[in-house]
Each structure stands twice: as C-alpha cells, then as structure tokens.
C-alpha cells in the first residue's frame, strides 16, 4: 500500500465488512503458517539454511541412484543381473536424514509459541487447542512427506527413463508407486510425531532436539550391543557389521531374545514396516532379527510409538494452563 496516500488522505478507521470464514480459515492459516515456519520462510535467510540442506541431502541419494540405474546397462551390458538399489532401499538410506531433520526443525513449530507467549493469542481466537496442535502436526507432516516423496518420484522417473522399454517397466513395476507412497507416509508419521510430542514438554527448542536425537542415538548402540554377536561362541565373526549377505546371522549375545531387543533401535522402527511393504529382505542385523518376529509385532510397536506420542501431544496441549 502506498504510504504517502495514507498520510495525505487519512481515511480514518474503517470497519471490516468482508467475509468471515470462521474456524476452517483459522485451521488453514495454522497449517500454512506451520509450513512456512518449518521452511524458515518470512524469517530471514539464516532460518532457511537448514531446511534447504536437509532437502538437498535427501534428494541427492535419489539422484545418484537414478543415475546409477541409467548407467548400469551401458557398463555391464543389458540384461545383466545387477543388484541396483530399489525404492525399498531409499527410505533406509534417507530415514536418518528425516529423523535428524524432524528432531531439529519440528520443535520450531511448537516451542517458540509457548516461550514467547504467542500461544495465548492463538487460544483466544475462534479455534481450540486441538485445532492448533492438529494444524501444526499436519503442517510438519506435509513437509516430511514432501521430502520423502520427492526422492522417490525422482527415483521412479529415473528408473522409467533408464529402462530399455519404459512402458514395460511401468507395467511391471507400477506397484512400487503405491508402495512408496504408503511407506513414505509410515516414515513421515513416525518422524513427525515423536519430536512434536517431546516439544510439548519444553519451551526450549534445543532441549527438545537434544532429547529426540539422544533417544535415537542411545537406542541405536543399545540395540546393537544387545543383538551383537556372542564372541565366545562365534570367534570368527567379532562384529555384526562384517557379516556377508546370505551367510546367516551369528549367534547374538542375548540368544533368542535378540529379535525382541532389535525393536529397541527406534530409528529403525518405521524401516521394519518399510521392509514389510516392499517385501524386502533386510541386510542389517537388527532388521533381520526383527523379521523373525511375527509381522504383527513390529507393526504394533510402530503404531504404539506413533499413536502414543500423538495422544501425549494432544493431551499435553489440552491441559495447557494460562
């Protein structure tokens, strides 16, 4: 609006007689504002650095895999049986990026509103705490989904273009699309909900981030140790990492319980479901052990670790005091 105009012809106060769209508009605004906040839009250039870096980090593996797929035929000749990474592998590769991204960025959507007191301005407007929490949650879910799907779409296009007969490839592999859509949702739901639930308990972003990353990184070696090889009974294989595919698992130090301990590795929880969706035989020790359990166990564990924090998040905001 042109400022000088306002100074010369001061129109005085004008009442608003345009449309009032109520709660649905408030929800949309919450979602859009959440997306902008997560991406650092409208907040100076420094806020955009991390989201961009993570986005690039998640896309690069997809581009590399697509390029590899396109070169395979030329290098080893058509029809050769080469194990090219598939859609099922992609989330395994980028899940750590999504976990870090969520742990670092998600608290940005909740903590500052409470630390700065903006939350009270939200709560006196025509919306409920449930609207607020759901709006923030959906906003961040949209971002993690966008990251997860972008890579898969690039990968899919790469595979189609690299195929000798693209239409045959589409006909034979169309099932990969619903699979990566479903698996992407599984990964995004998990990585979105836990850090947001943790953020509901602190007004300091750094604490929430440290706690979530700590949770993932403690559970990772903990599961590693508990499912590690028993060196006394298996001298030749001192560490699980050097196992070769198909050589069979070594005897874990915790014996038969090891497959349950495999569930401890929180970062892998959505990947177990990913493996089920793509029907992948996983190469990692933890994943292979978990695959020995009935399918319902990793699915139930995943649902518990996603719905649980979701309920905690909702409940924590319901009883927010002013």
């Amino acid at each position: 609006m042109a400022e000088p105009r306002g100074e010369v012809f001061d129109l005085g106060y004008r009442h608003y007689d345009g449309p009032r769209e109520g709660r649905m508009r408030a929800r949309k605004a919450l979602w859009a504002n959440g997306v902008r906040t997560a991406l650092g839009l409208g907040r100076g250039s420094r806020a955009k650095v991390l989201p961009v870096l993570f986005f690039v980090a998640a896309i690069i593996p997809a581009v590399v895999l697509a390029l590899v797929a396109s070169q395979v035929d030329e290098v080893v000749g058509p029809g050769a049986q080469v194990d090219i990474p598939s859609h099922g592998d992609y989330y395994q590769i980028i899940s750590i990026i999504l976990l870090l991204f969520s742990a670092i960025i998600a608290p940005e959507l909740l903590c500052p509103d409470r630390r700065e007191g903006v939350i009270y301005l939200y709560l006196v407007r025509p919306l409920t705490t449930t609207d607020y929490v759901a709006g923030r949650w959906l906003a961040f879910l949209s971002i993690t989904l966008a990251i997860a799907y972008s890579g898969q779409v690039i990968l899919f296009i790469g595979f189609v273009l690299a195929a000798a007969e693209p239409f045959d490839y589409l006909r034979d592999n169309w099932l990969d699309v619903p699979r990566f859509l479903a698996a992407g949702l599984v990964v995004a739901l998990f990585t979105t909900t836990i850090p947001l639930a943790v953020s509901a308990f602190t007004t300091r972003r750094a604490y929430a981030t440290a706690f979530v990353i700590g949770l993932y990184f403690i559970s990772f070696p903990a599961a590693g140790i508990l499912t590690g090889c028993d060196e006394e009974t298996d001298q030749r294989r001192p560490a699980p990492q050097v196992e070769e595919l198909g050589s069979g698992p070594c005897e874990p130090i915790t014996g038969d319980a090891a497959k349950w301990f495999g569930l401890i590795d929180l970062g892998k929880v959505p990947i177990h479901i990913n493996d089920l969706i793509f029907n992948e035989k996983s190469e990692s020790t933890v994943a292979r052990l978990v695959q020995e359990l009935p399918n319902g166990v990793p699915i139930g564990w995943y649902l518990f670790l996603t719905a649980g924090p979701g309920v905690v998040l909702w409940w924590q905001y319901r009883k927010i005091s002013v």
Partner: peptide, 11 residues
C-alpha cells in the same frame, strides 16, 4: 492473526 480470526488472506 487476522486469518486465525477467519479473515481470508487477501483481506
């Protein structure tokens, strides 16, 4: 804040 009170973005 205006949008949270139900006012469309343009207004």
């Amino acid at each position: 804040m205006a949008q949270l009170s139900g006012i469309p973005p343009r207004h």
